[in-house]
């Protein structure tokens, strides 16, 4: 464990909790893509099946359980408890265009052609694009609530910190996982446009709105 991975994980946790609290406090999931949240629930489920087969550390196990629990709680709030506030008309990204190619890629490019390994690879590829329905929704409505932008910033920060973590581990631990690194870099690039808007607008006290 290094400081970049730890702060990355905590930033990820902060993002998840910010989103849960936003929905809970406002009793509304307006502006939130339920599709992205379903994709994240699938990501955690397929990646953390190793909870049943291998133990790494108490930290590792507890974080996995918390991530999975929060992901399903978020999906429950959006599609069940606060369903009336869910903006399905604007959440129109076609997720099959992500899931099908990502599934095919996981079968073709992986470290080992075994059931658990392919599911793990699938989760890595899927996570890299799972935020697209959310970004698509914001570009479609042309705006995002400030709290939603904090959520996205924490998610993007988590990805950026993981890249620093990989550079660290490459030099100091002789560790690298090419699949995770390539997918992680792709994922971080997807946030760049948002980072720009976050710094130039939200941090200066303005609402995030896009020109029509």
């Amino acid at each position: 464990m290094n400081i970049f991975r730890l702060t990355g994980d905590l930033s990820h946790l902060a993002a998840i909790i910010i989103l849960l609290l936003k929905i809970w406090k406002t009793r509304s999931c307006a502006g939130i893509s339920g599709k992205s949240q379903i994709l994240f629930a699938i990501v955690f489920t397929t990646r953390y099946l190793d909870l049943l087969s291998s133990f790494i550390s108490l930290y590792n196990t507890s974080m996995k359980v918390i991530y999975i629990g929060c992901a399903y709680a978020t999906v429950y709030l959006i599609y069940m408890k606060f369903r009336a506030t869910y903006d399905g008309n604007h959440d129109s990204f076609r997720v099959e265009f992500l899931v099908v190619p990502v599934g095919g890629l996981a079968v073709l490019i992986n470290h080992d052609f075994s059931f658990l390994e392919i599911l793990w690879t699938f989760s890595i590829y899927l996570e890299s694009v799972a935020i697209l329905p959310q970004l698509f929704m914001i570009s479609k409505t042309g705006e995002a609530e400030t709290i939603t932008t904090h959520y996205l910033f924490c998610l993007g920060l988590y990805r950026a910190l993981y890249i620093v973590n990989w550079i660290w581990r490459y030099y100091f631990e002789a560790f690298f996982d090419l699949i995770a690194i390539v997918a992680g870099v792709v994922q971080t690039i997807l946030y760049c446009d948002f980072f720009y808007l976050y710094v130039t607008k939200v941090l200066k006290g303005k609402k995030l709105s896009l020109p029509a």
Binding site: I56, H111, A174, F176
Partner: peptide, 10 residues
């Protein structure tokens, strides 16, 4: 050698 893919990350 390099340690590839030990899956200790989240």
């Amino acid at each position: 050698g390099f340690n590839i893919n030990p899956k200790d990350e989240l």
